[in-house]
Amino acid sequence: MINTQERIEVASSAVQEDSEIDLGILLELGSIGAGHAATSLSDILQETITISVPKIHTLQPHLLPGFYDLHDRPTTAIYLHLNEKYGMDILLTFEEMEARKIAAMMNMCGSVEELDPAMETSALQELGNILIGSFLTSISDFIGLTLLPSTPETVTDGFDAILDNFLIKQSIDSESALVFETRFMRNGTDAKCILIIFPTQELKNLLVEKSKSMMGI
């Protein structure tokens, strides 16, 4: 556990720009988490899951919808956040039909038509718990910092409409959003699930500092 003094020192360096080394460390942390999340997803679905090479983007929040260019694509999102002390929004987005297929598989339904809406929501929240839980636990284990997520919420709507809630928060806090992104593919299909994470500057600094201390840098 990090002590209070350490937290204050880390928070006070929040105004520093992210160096390439720091971004590299964050990317490595995210890759560890994404690998574990993919394994969890594979265990749940009993299918081969591949992940794209994780990426970190630093760009102005309002440019993100244009960057993804998905606009009104029907999307199901599972949203979790870390507690207030660390602050991080986590968004796991699926193409709507892909989310329904996965929920049907989790409920042992033969097709999406057999899926009860309440069971669909419940299955997707469970999926979010397992995937994000796995992602965060692997990072926690690596750097020795407890990261506990909130209860998941799900929403189905257009991609941009879902994203704008988070981008508003980002644009209040900072000129640029740091976005960690990885894509999961089931049975080699096109990327249908995107994990997007918005860490606060304080959490970024904390993760980097803890990682550096673990690696003796």
Partner: peptide
């Protein structure tokens, strides 16, 4: 686009998506 604005006098359809 998000945070943008457009003004037009042509007969077009201005489109945006919001939450």
């Amino acid at each position: 686009d998000m945070a943008g604005f457009k003004v037009e006098s042509r007969p077009v359809e201005l489109v945006t998506s919001v939450g």
